[in-house]
Design a protein around this nucleic acid. Structure first.
Length: 356
DNA sequence: CAAACGTGGAG
DNA sequence: TCTCCAAGTTT
């Protein structure tokens, strides 16, 4: 049985102080993170937070640096070319984030005088800024006492309090606990401390409780049940869908299209495709009535969040009435294709023996 | 509110 | 090979 009472403010202060002290010694050094005692500028915080949504620190690192170098401010991003931004985002996934970022930068420029609002409620109104991101920016960039709850915090807090309710329902209780625990001093560091703890110590599997600075307060740890939390909802199994990607080549150029602004891979450059269905659709939706050859090679397999895709590959030569861009085959690397189409293009090039 | 929305790395 | 999951948001 734990010797601490969770209703004691003194215990909360002690726990938060222990976490901050641990953070001061062990925090990760990240490109978007200011040195101790300094505050990162709001643009840097916002950009990193959006890039990090559902995306690993390792994946974001290099992309963040190049993105910030190219568009170093809200003003610069607000006047950026849409296609250039989408290409820069290619491969990072969740492409609505890139569309929302542009909309957000333009809203900041047009409606906020180019300055990011500094309150959680005003931030929450911006495109692509939800509960988590609004709180994170308010705390980290502006020093406001906002309750920051991401996946790391959900894990840490659900273990600390042994919250048995499954996510996402448990989020209300978790947020209430975080609101109590977040100190008035250094709220941004406190939020990042909890996230670093979740990333490095309080991991999903085999958490390193022996190294945890707040283990003595952890209810789950007290009963050895730390890996039971957080309780996740039962996941649906992912269906399989089938489609066809078309490679239409003319004078060493291939036809690329721009996908519709919303929906899967929305706004991204892509190979033409037909519908994606429960069975192979054959040559439906081809960009011309050429003599299509379905490549014998197995199609491209790709896993999306909510379904698996098997993409058949069809190739032909000639022109098309379909709106699009004729892209030099040797320069496809700069086309900004999402991964599934980059893979498909690689398969075509390999199969057709195109020389760059 | 449940479902849509990407990708790559870890175990 | 396959499941899990990562600084979530939008509809």
């Amino acid at each position: 049985m734990l010797s601490h009472s969770w209703h004691s403010p003194a215990v909360r202060v002690t726990l938060s102080a222990a976490l901050l002290a641990w953070y001061d010694r062990h925090r990760r050094r990240l490109p978007w993170r200011a040195e101790r005692g300094a505050a990162a500028d709001p643009y840097t915080v916002w950009l990193s937070e959006v890039m990090l949504q559902q995306t690993t620190v390792a994946a974001v690192g290099p992309r963040f640096e190049s993105f910030r170098a190219r568009w170093p401010s809200f003003a610069a991003l607000a006047v950026a070319d849409d296609a250039a931004v989408m290409s820069a985002w290619a491969g990072l996934g969740y492409y609505a984030r890139a569309r929302n970022m542009l909309a957000c930068a333009r809203a900041v420029a047009a409606e906020h005088g180019g300055v990011l609002p500094d309150t959680e409620s005003a931030l929450r109104q911006l495109p692509g800024v939800g509960d988590y991101t609004a709180a994170a920016i308010a705390a980290i960039a502006f020093g406001r006492r906002a309750a920051v709850v991401d996946g790391n915090v959900e894990r840490v807090v659900s273990r600390l309090f042994a919250i048995g309710e499954p996510l996402p329902g448990a989020r209300t209780a978790i947020k209430a606990r975080v609101a109590e625990l977040t100190p008035a001093e250094r709220p941004g560091d406190y939020a990042q401390a909890t996230m670093d703890l979740g990333a490095m110590i309080c991991t999903p599997r085999r958490p390193a409780c022996a190294l945890c600075p707040v283990a003595e307060w952890c209810v789950a740890r007290a009963t050895g049940e730390q890996e039971r939390y957080p309780v996740k909802p039962t996941k649906r199994e992912r269906p399989r869908r089938y489609g066809t990607a078309y490679w239409l080549e003319d004078e060493s150029r291939v036809l690329l299209v721009r996908r519709p602004a919303t929906g899967l891979l929305g706004g991204m450059r892509a190979l033409p495709t037909g519908p994606w269905e429960d069975a192979p659709p054959g040559l439906v939706g081809a960009p011309s009535d050429a003599d299509w050859e379905l490549l014998a090679r197995r199609g491209v397999e790709h896993g999306f969040t909510h379904f698996h895709l098997t993409l058949a590959l069809a190739q032909a030569t000639g022109t098309s009435d379909m709106a699009g861009e004729w892209w030099p085959v040797g320069e496809l690397g700069s086309a900004g294709l999402p991964t599934v189409f980059r893979r498909a293009a690689e398969a075509f090039v390999e199969e057709l023996g195109v020389v760059e």
